[in-house]
């Protein structure tokens, strides 16, 4: 299990990175934390001609609160850095709680927030969290930057609304409104595994955002647990049956909404 040969670039600026990614003659991929890409390369399921490593791009390394109070996460920020930041735990408790379920410490130390979004495993926690929190994903490409709402970003299994030559540069998580409550629940085979099925829920005074994940080709944003059974399109795989995922999605949605409401009220 050794990866095939590839060209390796570690540009120092985003502009250089975009230039490399924009070269249509070479099939390049972005290397951020590598926690999803490198296993696929070791199995030779992914055989990119070149990797563009973000490790030297300082302008993408930030975790800050923007002028509008949103949490801005640069493309180099790891999941571990996010968890270590007390401002995240205090201001975005749903995000914090959900990210503790991502893999293990050895994964979170390398894995990036934006990388998980771009990779879009529908059983992964971060796409669901982005959707529940109404995040916006900023992508950059040859034609400049654009912002994509989480609702529009996740398309299907491992597919997102990125055009050729584009990469994710930032994820913005709006501050949950005052008086909101949250809940995060998932069922996994083992501690640290991808979820068989899970729910991320944010109850704000004006809006309830209930996200079911692991139950369709992308996380699903719903308003009410009553919609879950009809909305999900779960996979039947060796870890769980489709019917299991449907039943448990309904169950977790109900539990999560109740918990989030309780937290909102308290």
């Amino acid at each position: 299990m050794k990866p095939a040969s590839f060209d390796y670039h570690a540009p120092a600026t985003l502009a250089e990175a975009l230039e490399l990614l924009g070269d249509d003659a070479v099939e390049s991929r972005v290397l951020a934390g590598g926690q999803s890409l490198v296993p696929m390369m070791n199995f030779r399921l992914a055989v990119p001609e070149a990797l563009v490593d973000l490790r030297r791009i300082e302008e993408l390394r930030y975790l800050r609160t923007g002028a509008d109070g949103a949490l801005e996460v640069g493309a180099r920020t790891t999941q571990a850095e996010l968890l270590r930041d007390p401002a995240v735990a205090a201001g975005w408790p749903l995000l914090h709680a959900g990210v503790t379920h991502v893999g293990h410490p050895q994964v979170r130390s390398r894995g990036t927030v934006c990388g998980s979004l771009a990779h879009h495993d529908p059983h992964g926690e971060l796409p669901a969290l982005a959707l529940a929190l109404g995040a916006t994903i900023t992508v950059a490409g040859p034609d400049g930057r654009r912002r994509i709402a989480a609702e529009d970003f996740f398309v299907s299994f491992y597919e997102v609304a990125l055009e050729s030559g584009e990469m994710v540069v930032e994820a913005r998580f709006p501050a949950p409104p005052a008086g909101s409550g949250w809940s995060f629940r998932e069922i996994a085979r083992r501690h640290g595994d991808f979820a068989l099925v899970g729910v991320a829920c944010l109850v704000a005074p004006a809006e309830t955002r209930l996200v079911v994940f692991g139950a369709a080709e992308r996380p699903l944003l719903l308003a009410d647990p009553g919609e879950v059974a009809a909305a999900v399109r779960p996979l039947d795989d060796l870890h769980a049956s489709a019917e299991y995922r449907r039943q448990v999605a309904v169950q977790l949605a109900g539990e999560a909404l109740a918990e989030a409401r309780e937290r909102a009220g308290g």
Binding site: F43, R189, R190, H191, G192, D193, F194, L238, H239
Partner: peptide, 16 residues
């Protein structure tokens, strides 16, 4: 073979 890796062949961890 459907269980050709350690994501699909699931060994127990310290958590179990």
């Amino acid at each position: 073979l459907r269980t050709g890796n350690f994501m699909d062949y699931v060994l127990p961890t310290a958590g179990e």
